[in-house]
Amino acid sequence: MGWALVIEILSWLFILSGSAFTLIGAIGTLRFPNFWSRLHAASISESAGMILLISGMCLQGGISLLTVKLLIIGTFIFITGPTSTHAVANAAHTSGARPDSDEDARKKQKGTS
């Protein structure tokens, strides 16, 4: 009885925090000022949000075929998510878009002042 309650609470925790992280990622995608920083915001919902939601649903599914399917979906997104993010970044880089570097700007400012 106690064991089932622990799993229930854990899956609640995972699913709720996972939804919070996807929401934060989406807010970041909307708020960040340019493309290169938006890449980072989008990868939040793709890593933390996805992992937490899938593991929360796995705990709900218990030991069954559902969990196996969820794990297959999770592993697939775990591998392809960063690959497609890299593909987008690489395509933008190849097309000639270069990120502006705050670090270089700060160094230059420090050197002149």
């Binding site: 890449l39 980072h40 915001a41 990868s43 939040i44 890593s47 933390a48 775990f78 591998i79 998510g81 960063p82 690959t83 993010t85 890299h86 970044a89 690489n90 880089h93 190849t94």
Partner: peptide
């Protein structure tokens, strides 16, 4: 490269 991209905050570009 995938691990770099998977941790938010760093992305492998080229």
């Amino acid at each position: 490269a995938n691990s770099i991209t998977l941790t938010p905050g760093t992305i492998s570009v080229e």
